[in-house]
Amino acid sequence: MYPRKFDYTAPRTIADAVAALAGDEGAKVMAGGMSLLPLMKMRLLSPATIVDIGRIDGLDRIEDRGDHIAVGALVRHAETAASDLVQTHAPALARAASLTGDVQVRNKGTTCGSLAHADIAADQTAAVIALGATMVATGPGGTREIAAADFFVDTLTSALAPDEILTEVRIPKGGSGSAYDKLGRRGGRSDYAVAGAAAWVDKTNGSITAARVAVTGVGTKPMLVEAVGAALVGTDGSPEAIAAAAEHATEGVTLLEDLYGSEEYKAHLAKVYAARALTEALGG
């Protein structure tokens, strides 16, 4: 298929990019384009202007900032997946990035782009929520920080304003482990998530002191399921404790049936993958 006509601009600075967005209601940001271009080719989306941020310097880095790591807007999925920093401090995100799309998609698509697209069946969305990440949005008024758990508003809808760019995602260091696992649409872990869960845990002296689990693929948006973490805190993180906590995996989730799962099945899978992610996060 072939996109409709549009204007194209490739600013060199974030300020120029924000200005381009602010001055044009029909403008859309493009980083890797892996989510945007297929929609445009099928003419489901026809922005008047594409603001290609691909030529802005400095956005393609993963940085160690002491108490957190920062993943810039142009970091590709493949780079997120292969990064020592991400693997060390945010294994859930590294894993989710490695399970996003296929090799070519991971070579072009960006972690931040996928997050901003807010697909209900994406992988890294759940990871950043579970990791307690902070999303940094840059708009005409400067930058603002949005907690990952508040970032995903609805299907394909993030908390970004139309004139804002997700310039980086910050992931706090700490905790004793994190993990992501999913069932893919083609079975195994291939393709978009039928259901997936990311878990982050902190375990001190044999007791879980903090835990967060986020699910993706099962509902109207990727989301933090606070009840799972709450149920796990104070336990020893045993298989029984995990199983009991995972039972809460759909609390607050608006389940959504699709070609790959009924609501009942998705609810079941949310529990299965919450348990699997927790088990792996705890080194099991």
Partner: peptide, 10 residues
Amino acid sequence: VKSCTYLAVA
């Protein structure tokens, strides 16, 4: 990369 999902200008 997949050249069908890549603007030539980019």
